[in-house]
Amino acid sequence: MDERFSGFGAFILYTITAGMMVFILAPLLLVMAASVSDSYFVTFPPQGFTLKWYAKVLQDRDFLEAMRLSILLALGTTAGSLLFGVPAAFALVRGDFFGVAAIKGFLLSPLIFPALITGLALLQVLNKLGSTDARLNLLIGHIVVTSPYVIRTVVTSLQLVDENLEDAARTLGANRLRTFWRVTLPQIASGVAAGGLFAFMVSFDNYPVTMWLANSEYSPVPLVLMRQLVNVFDPSVPAMSTIIILMAMVGVLILEKLVGLRRALAA
């Protein structure tokens, strides 16, 4: 937007924007505040200041084990959905075959399909297939749910790539794979990064699909958090949440520095 807003319109606009910011951020700040409360229950406003809940969480075996599982799962999901989503996006944008639109709709459908149903459907299919390893099932389930995010962002950035660049590379002696690697990928790096970040975060805090596919041995963070919440709602729950929020923020900042995430998300 080049024009500056002024007058009453600007006042309304800024008020609404500020309101939205508060609406989005307040719950997060509330959680952060509750995590340092020196009390045995979650209270607001927090009473006193202590980091003992963090100390407790960081010594909690269940939580640490869940963190480890969730991070590995999210990394695997990110890799898997990129491996699947980037070529799929490429085919959707560059492909000129029958039913491109229908396939696109199908590949993006997990975005609009209720995740609870997707999870249940996956559980039944994987059971039928005799797949009993919860970790593998979780990985498959998460890739199904996160791939549409990757496809979405990569399709958007691919559409902005000048096809003449690829043609030029090919006339210069690059085959399709090298053309993709040396010319196309650098152009869509921000879209790929954004898709990857989405995949990681969506996998990391996915509850509805995870709930169906996890078991008592392999429980990712959202399940452990939920269990903790139901059992003892002490400030260790907000402490866990705060750790996750900070992780997400650091991830976003690093990607922003590396590839200009803002540009990719705005596209």
Binding site: D162, N164, L165, D167, R170, T171, G173
Partner: peptide, 14 residues
């Protein structure tokens, strides 16, 4: 195309 050894110029330079 990548084995044809052609030099090509495009309108938008590419």
């Amino acid at each position: 195309v990548h084995r044809r050894n052609v030099g090509m110029l495009f309108q938008n330079y590419a």
